[in-house]
Write a protein that binds this DNA or RNA. Sequence first.
DNA 1: ATGAAAGCGCTAACAC
DNA 2: GTGTTAGCGCTTTCAT
Lengths: 345, 345
Amino acid sequence: MTGSDSRPPTLEQVANYAGVSRATVSRVINGVQTVDPELRRTVERAIAATGYVPNLAARSLVTGRTDSIALVVSEPENRGYSTPFLTRMFTDPFLGRITAGAQEVLRPLGIHLVIFLADPPARPHLLRYLRQGHVDGALLISSHVDDPLPGQLVELGVPVVLSCRPGHPVTISYVDVDQWAGVRMAVDHLARLGRRSLATITGPLDMPAAQDRLAAFEQSVRAHGLEPRHVEGDFTRSGGERAARRLLTEHADVDGIFVANDLMADGALRVVQETGRKVPDEVAVIGFDDSTAALECHPPLTTVRQPVEEMAGEMAQLLMTRIREPQRTPRSVIFNPELIVRASA
Amino acid sequence: MTGSDSRPPTLEQVANYAGVSRATVSRVINGVQTVDPELRRTVERAIAATGYVPNLAARSLVTGRTDSIALVVSEPENRGYSTPFLTRMFTDPFLGRITAGAQEVLRPLGIHLVIFLADPPARPHLLRYLRQGHVDGALLISSHVDDPLPGQLVELGVPVVLSCRPGHPVTISYVDVDQWAGVRMAVDHLARLGRRSLATITGPLDMPAAQDRLAAFEQSVRAHGLEPRHVEGDFTRSGGERAARRLLTEHADVDGIFVANDLMADGALRVVQETGRKVPDEVAVIGFDDSTAALECHPPLTTVRQPVEEMAGEMAQLLMTRIREPQRTPRSVIFNPELIVRASA
DNA sequence: ATGAAAGCGCTAACAC
DNA sequence: GTGTTAGCGCTTTCAT
């Protein structure tokens, strides 16, 4: 059946071929148990012979479901990043872990995960895409504090789960790591190593995660009777280099640095060593994430582990229950971080 | 209209609201010109008032189109990579450039681009997804030589364009860079610098692009009367480090290295310098891609530029014409590379 | 320029 | 356990 027929075979054609009704074929396709085993085999042969594939649009029109959900990575506006959005997304192992974790949960459910990268010019498309019912719901990653997307989606009635605490209060499920606990672990570790001149390289301070980590850093450092310092970075490797350079210039005496993600920590590590300082003896460095980048650092990076895969899996689960029971009030889940000690601190 | 109605408004409801027929509303929605301007405004008001959004499934059922295409990144089997597929995909800036280039073309056409990462466990899902008509066609990235996916898709009648020369001859459009020309530029440059002991770090040798670059390297080096050497890498940064370590052990006299992509070149650069060799004076290093990673290398990387964004744009264009005119024979387009000289060679 | 009506391919009641 | 039937929401002839 090397289909040169202009149109693909339909349920009806399969039914005719098998000498049964459309309903029976439909039942076989959908795995309904109440079908005579013999008839089922007849139908299955007919399906194979005709090369039949269900038409999704038709099914979706009647069921109202699409069995696919979107993983949306959104950036509300172009800030002064040196690297374009798409490059950043495809340079940080973070997204890969999210995808893997979500797929793990979705795959057994027969749900497709489609990835959607929404930089500013893509946003109108994204909204259309989601409103049109291409997907049953969305996992939303990122979110600068003033990202309007979460609100818009809720208003549109699209089931959504966020990847971290929303910037503004919205009635919405989210999953996050206990940022404060994680940062405190890092700071305590630095203090335990006897470091007294502590600084942090932050993420973009318009992102909730970056804000949380900075606030937690400052409080934890003060709790040790020390004076916190910080430089703003942008979560990229080269941003980490730049920030470290600035930090070492402004505060040459720093002996412990908490970097808000592993990618920047990698960059910072390089710069610290280029300036002739030994890691970890003269300057200890701790990252955040425990992504693959942490292992590729020289020396291997001590870092605060986020269970990203698990978190993404939980997001998927929250979303599925939200899709199934839209009126239930949103739940959120906070995960525990863990300090992974390697060679950099 | 904060829709607490269980079902979203339909065309019919808009028509009733506006006091016209469904056909007229449909025309307004689809921008058909033959509509009285006044009526059009009435309809537009009705659309706004009801908060109407077209139902994609219904439209798609009748038009047979979905106005979205998939960007599929496929890996046929798990080879012995040290890094998992998803991590690799989200660590190499390559995919981001592909996405950007494709979006550039697709966006003005109102076509959505959805990304689909297909590691081995996801493949059955992918096939179902594509067969079911979720998308009008697919841009297929990657392809190990024995990837069955291109063939399967062609057989299924899914319009496809490949990102590089297919491993096996298939009647299929593809876009590629002139690998031979690019590699020759790199080798000629090394020779011009007086390097006589040349080696290459290759990609996984089951990928056509890696094979092409190795073959081209060997021929170009021999053309200079020199003896080519090679070590197999895996296109990742840490793979580049490992390969470079092996290379320097086996051939301590190497003074020029062509690395099959920028990411591995970054790793190689690090290792070369760790062993006390100066770059470029003692060892010259040239990469391939001219991705953002090239600029972040220390020193900045001399590399062979692939116009990835343009190539992806061309892929999108080829795919769209293939979708519109399925019977036309597939066309392929080869792009010219360019040597970007920076500090590493 | 507008409306009426015929499906697109499928699922889900409902009858048998 | 199987078939019949009524739509799902939209586009698109075909009349008017």
